[in-house]
Every structure is written in C-alpha cells, then in structure tokens.
Design a binder for these strands. Structure first.
Length: 437
RNA sequence: CGGGGCGUAGCGCAGUCUGGUAGCGCGCGAGUUUUGGGUACUCGAGGCCCCCGGUUCGAAUCCGGGCGCCCCGACCA
C-alpha cells in the first residue's frame, strides 16, 4: 500500500479526550474515530489489526474443535423473558421496538439464542458434544464508557458456547477452551494469565479470567513469578488428550485478581509474588444447566432418559485486544506491534521522494516485497524524513526499511527493528530476503 | 448512578470574570527554502463560538432550559 493513496489520518497532538496510552495512540495513529460515547469507527489501519486478531482467534477456536456460525445482533425480547434474564439485565441492555411495537434488543451476549438454536436441532446424546462460536458485535449500555475501545459500549466479541451430556464432559470442553485461550493470546505476542474468577451474573461454579499485565491496567492482580517465565506455546498437548493434568498444572500456579486475593491466606511467599496491573481480555465460564434448564434444552440419553444440556460460555473481547496489546507493547514514540497482529509487516520509507535514485530503489523494493507476499506500507509522500520517521514509529510496524541518498551512494539501505531500535545497513536484496524469510 | 469538568477552525487551546468587527499554535492549499528525526519564511483557505429561548442598541461572553463529551468513584468482555 502506498501511503499517498492510503487513508491514514495521523495526529501530531494528543486529543484531549484520550487519557490512557492505547486510546491516545489509536487516535493518533489513525486507527479509530469516535462516533458517540463508547462507539467507534475503525479506520483502515485499525481495521487491519482487528481483522488479524479476529483471524488468530478464529484459527485457535477451529483448532480446538469449535465451529463458527453467525447469530444476529438484534434479538427478540421474548427469549430473554424465557430465560428470566430480561429484567435482570437492567439498563445495560439496549431495548428497542420495531414498527410493529415488538420488543427487541441489541444483543449483549448470546446464551439464550444459541441455546434455543441447539434445543430445536439437537435430540440425542449422539449429537454431543458441540462447541459453537461466533465473532459478532455486542452492545452493552455501560454507565461509563471510557478508555477508547477498551471499555466501549459497542464491542466485537468472540463468544463460544459448549454443550455436553455430562458435567465431566463439560469440564473437558472448559479445559479445551482454557488451552485455546492460552494459545490464542500467546500467538498474539501476549502473556495472558488465567486467574480464578467470580462467575458474576452469568453464574456457574467454575470461571477464569485471562489477564495480561500492563502498567495502565484497570485492576490490581497478583501472581506467582513463575508465570512470567511460562511459555505456553511449547506445550505438547492436544485438544483430545486428557487435559486435566495440563489444566491442574496451570491452575496450581497462583494467580488472582484483587477481589479474589487475600494477603493473609495467599500461599505464595512475598518474594515470589508479583503484584501488577492487569487487563481482562477473556473470560470463560462453566455454568451447567443455568440456561438449558429454564429454556428446556435437553437430549435423549443413552438409556432413553431426558438429560438437560451441560453448558459453558467462553468470551474474548476482540475489539478490546488492539488496545490491550498497545498497553502492553509501546514506547514514548508510539505503538510497537507484535509481528502476528501488525497491520503491515514493514514500512518502506523513501527519505527523498522525488529523487530519481531513491524513487527507483523504493519502487523496486516495493515490488519485490509484494511479490514475496510481504505486507508493506510504502511511505512515498513528499515529506521531510523526520515526519516519516515519526509517523512510522507512531503506527508501530515491526520493521522500517529506509532508503535515502546517503545510503544509496554505497548501494545500501537501512533496516530498523521497531521494538529494539536496532539498525543494520545492508544490500536491498538482502533486506528483501530477510523480510520475506 | 453519585461527584467534578469541558463544549470556540481538522487537532491543541486563548478569549467568557468585566458584553462592542473571533484569535494563537499545529495541520491544510499555493510558493520559496531545506533534505537522514515533526525545517524556516511568504501568501491563502477554513467558524450556525454545541442547540433553543431570554436580557440588551449589541451576546462566544450575562440568565434559563436542553444536548453532547471527558474525568474520579461504584459497576463491567
């Protein structure tokens, strides 16, 4: 993509409304624009990141055996009356009426709808287990939206729902998602720590919040220092294995949110305890028959008996993740995207647009990188180098490839790693080779 | 939902107390200059001063009402 053609409205100054670093950088980097309190438009650069994150989430859900479907954003009120949650949900639920005065709502979550879909189609224990998920916009009319997309009213969520015959089978589904979440966040370059959590209004007896550590996090969290050294991607465990040992191992390492942490009973000695700020990016629940019972979602069991479905739900705040990643990965100049979620892999900077040699060298590099399938953003603007450096640091692409008259005299270009600031001079063809490796 | 603050050019702000032709910086357009970390200068465009009503010869400014947004707290993917 050529920057002269791209819609990338960057800002030099901090918008007054943005308090936390991710919100400031998302606005300044031209990723989002606010439309109303807690409601945002995703501009091209932000949308690219959102799509990358969404895709990683999708791949890991699929790998865990879940199947994607898509449910509507608008739901009829009656199904919420049937589960008994219509009144409980209160003002957070956006209630609307259609032209026939039928009561509708903009879905804040989908337990009711998915349960009803399954209820009508699943008759036998032979149809189980099932895990179904979608990635869809939700609306919760928060009292106080803030921090940009971190606490928006409209947000994109991946919500998965598991259906099993027995509590044991349901716990296996829960552990599958536990593993999938560890992998999902690790793939995005983040260390997400599962912490035993309150089940809150969703109910149930088993729940974990996945929290990433960041100085600007919303709540205080505590964990054993060994968590910081844990590499979940190296785990050799499959989704169909017995996941109990794996699950027990990970849940035995202490990790707790402020509400669940009691210094008096904490089993970890102070020297091993890490106290940090944390951001919640995922939450998983096992809640048994809380919804299947009132909604009468049953199957016929092996002995001909009627069995109420055992359920769990598993959410990832997809639209919150770009902000959470920025909170965990930035410096004073801007965002530092982990490679897997970066909107482009490399920014090609023409330090002297209009100069024949620079233009030619850049065009060649641009064409070769694209031919190799490398996502490259080519800054071909007629701007001062300083402007380009500043913008490129701000939007945080992992690599910057700088082409200027000074280096070209020796036939060299310069490759900078955004995260470390490390630079090397090398031949253009070597730069292509390194970036497409 | 309690407490506080703010709405003036695309962004950041001054002007409001004490009513009298709407300003500054950045950004934007044209040009000169400069060319490896937000260059300098010249010229220029850009405003329902959040909205409605009131007071007044005259309102960005005073008064009343409304709307929107932000911050702290309680709540939350």
């Amino acid at each position: 993509m050529r920057l002269t053609k791209y819609f990338l409205p960057t800002l030099k100054e901090n918008p007054a409304e943005a308090q936390i670093v991710s919100h400031r950088f998302m606005l300044r980097a031209g990723m989002i624009r606010q439309q109303a309190a807690g409601i945002y438009a995703w501009l091209p650069l932000g949308h690219r990141v959102l799509r990358k994150i969404e895709q990683i989430v999708r791949e890991e859900q699929d790998a865990a055996g879940a199947q994607e479907l898509l449910m509507p954003t608008i739901q009829p009120a009656e199904i919420w009356r049937e589960s008994g949650r219509y009144d409980d949900y209160g003002k957070e639920m956006l209630r609307i009426r259609d032209r026939h005065e039928r009561e509708m709502l903009y879905g804040p979550t989908n337990e009711e709808m998915i349960t009803l879909i399954l209820r009508n189609e699943i008759k036998s224990y032979r149809d189980l287990p099932k895990q179904l998920y979608h990635i869809q916009w939700k609306f919760r009319d928060e009292v106080r939206p803030r921090f940009g997309v971190m606490r928006g009213r409209e947000f994109l969520m991946k919500d998965n729902y598991s259906f099993d015959l027995t509590p044991e089978a349901a716990r296996h589904s829960y552990r599958q998602m536990f593993l999938a979440y560890l992998r999902t966040f690790a793939r995005m370059g983040m260390k997400a720590i599962p912490m035993r959590a309150d089940t809150g209004p969703i109910g149930g007896d088993l729940s974990h919040e996945f929290i990433i550590l960041a100085d600007t996090g919303e709540s205080q969290v505590f964990c054993h220092k060994d968590w910081l050294e844990t590499d979940v991607l190296s785990q050799e465990v499959g989704y169909d294995d017995d996941l109990a040992p794996f699950f027990d191992k990970y849940t035995s390492l202490y990790a707790a949110t402020e509400e669940m942490h009691d210094p008096a009973t904490c089993p970890v000695p102070a020297t091993d305890l890490v106290t940090r700020r944390g951001i919640e990016i995922g939450h998983i629940f096992y809640f048994g028959t809380k919804y299947s019972k009132p909604l009468n979602a049953t199957v016929t069991g092996p002995d001909g008996e009627t069995v109420t479905l055992e359920m769990g739900s598993y959410g990832i705040g997809v639209s919150r993740l770009p902000a959470a990643i920025i909170e965990a990965s930035h410096d004073e100049n801007g965002i530092v995207w982990p490679d897997p979620v970066a909107p482009f892999k490399v920014g090609l900077i023409n330090l002297k647009a209009g100069d024949g040699d620079c233009d030619r060298a850049c065009e060649t590099l641009y064409a070769r990188l694209r031919a190799k399938g490398v996502d490259v953003l080519y800054d071909d603007r007629d701007q001062r180098p300083g402007v380009k450096f500043a913008d490129m640091d701000l939007i945080g692409l992992p690599w910057q490839l700088m082409v200027g008259p000074r280096g070209l005299k020796a036939g060299m270009v310069e490759l900078k790693r955004r995260a470390t600031g490390e630079r090397v001079e090398l031949l253009p063809e070597d730069a292509v080779a390194r970036l497409s490796a």
